[in-house]
Simulated scan of single mutants.
Amino acid sequence: MKTRKYASPVAAVVAASMLAVASSTAMAAIICDTATVPLAVPQDGTGIYLNLITGANGASPPSGWDFNPYDRGLPGISFWFNNDANRGALWDGTNISVLPSGATVGPASLFTSSVADPGPALWRTTNTGMYMGLRVFNEGTATMNYGWIQLDTGATAGFPATINHFCYQNDGTAITTGTTPVSLQSYSID
């Protein structure tokens, strides 16, 4: 006995059409900047401004900038988030979190856009290979996006500081720190 999945050719055409439409819609993607990193954070009152979505950066704020690490003097490195509640860093209620690889950053996370102390205190020491979770506004899609910056800081009040890598999830869903698109991953065949 032969089993048919669809009762009629019309049902098969409808199912195939639905699959074609579903596959042509925009897919969620992790977007990473590989062109502008690493970025040294100047140890001055200006620092570096960064638009996480476009990768635009510099000593002057680029359009739609999201993140500005800078030297606040004593006590050291600090962060500014464009005076915007749509932007900010993941925090624990007191401090901007220093995250390991594998941490979740997303809509359920707690964020702050405040630069008041003691917020940046955990970044004013040696942190190598650690991540800061960020919430940014994507002007191109008018959606909130979640991402991470891999930021190394030094023992002298957070300096020297270097942004080594940054990525965001372009559809407003959570991202895991340290994840990169398949195209950026390397594989070997033993």
Rank of each mutant, 00 (worst) to 15 (best):
Y168G: 06
P62H: 08
K5F: 08
P75W: 04
N170F: 04
T143N: 15
Y187N: 05
S113D: 15
N51I: 14
G64C: 01
V14A: 13
A116L: 14
M132R: 02
W65H: 14
A29G: 07
A29K: 13
G93Y: 14
G76V: 00
G158K: 00
L52W: 03
T128L: 12
A26F: 08
G133K: 00
N138F: 03
T112R: 02
G147M: 07
A108C: 01
T126W: 00
C167I: 12
P61F: 03
N83Y: 05
G158N: 02
I77A: 07
N127H: 06
Y70H: 09
T104V: 15
G147I: 09
G119R: 14
A103L: 12
D66G: 06
P61L: 04
F166W: 13
N127Q: 15
N95Y: 14
L39F: 07
A22P: 03
P160C: 11
T173H: 13
G178I: 09
N127K: 06
A121Q: 15
G158Q: 02
A56W: 11
A16K: 12
L110C: 00
T176W: 11
V14C: 11
F166T: 11
D84K: 08
G178D: 13
Q150S: 12
V115Q: 15
T125P: 00
G64Q: 02
G129M: 11
N57R: 11
P9I: 07
I48Y: 01
T94E: 03
T153M: 08
M130D: 01
G88E: 06
F137M: 10
Q185N: 14
F67H: 09
A155W: 00
H165G: 05
D84I: 06
A7H: 12
G45E: 07
D117N: 14
T180I: 10
A89Y: 08
T128S: 15
P69C: 09
L50N: 05
T125Y: 00
V105H: 03
A40G: 08
N57T: 09
F159I: 03
V21T: 14
F111K: 06
G140K: 02
T173N: 15
I149C: 06
C167Q: 13
T46D: 08
A7E: 15
I96H: 02
G58Q: 12
T143P: 00
M130T: 01
V14K: 13
L134T: 04
Y49I: 02
M18Q: 13
R135F: 01
P160K: 06
V105T: 06
V98G: 09
Q169I: 04
G133Q: 01
T153P: 07
T112I: 04
F137R: 14
A155V: 05
G154W: 01
V14H: 05
P181L: 12
T162Y: 10
P107C: 08
A26I: 10
A142T: 15
V21N: 10
V41Q: 05
S23Y: 09
Q169F: 06
T34G: 10
V37I: 15
G76P: 00
L90H: 11
N95E: 06
T128C: 00
P62W: 09
I77P: 05
